[in-house]
Amino acid sequence: MVGLMGLAELLKLPRWRSPEREATPAERLRRLIEAHFDFVGRSLRRLGVPEADVDDACQQVFLVVSRKLEEIEESREKSYLFGVALRVASDARRGRRRRAAVLSEGEEGAEGVAEEGCPERTLQQRRARAMLDEILESMPIELRTVFVLFELEEMTMSEIAHTIEVPPGTVASRLRRAREHFQEQTRRLQASRGRVS
């Protein structure tokens, strides 16, 4: 009997002795960085953090997460990281607006422009990225979030619903509106700035 119970206990082990549970906080944090650092960086960039500030913003996200590790459910780690990234990006956007207010238009416009001598393709790529920034910047944040996760991060709609904790129908609705906004803005840009390839 004891042997059978022992066996039963052994059989249960994989259910509750997951590697995450055994990991120390430092190991868990390290694993989070390994698994999600790039995702966090891409998300920050697409949520409005300037390219030059992405590394610092990433660091800020993981600093915050390191303080909250015990509160983060293992099944919701990515969701939690994205939530922190949203807040950090929001702060960065506000900071950028403040800086823009004291910069001349010329200085602000020079930001992110490819330096002289860059190959044509790189220049076009940078122009396209700047236009995408402009369009994303004009999107309400709830639409932008869904658009970024679906169209750029290529997450499924159910993954997005899980990540941002909204019903699937809301994700679908926001995506539809975000696409309308995106297409309207691309048409406007095409009309005003010409095409890029």
Partner: peptide, 26 residues
Amino acid sequence: FERALLRSARSDGPSLQGKQRALAAL
């Protein structure tokens, strides 16, 4: 045009140095 804009985000992301700095900071 739409496709070019969307493709332009493919190179988004942090640098390797950024990752190492974050690890150091933590």
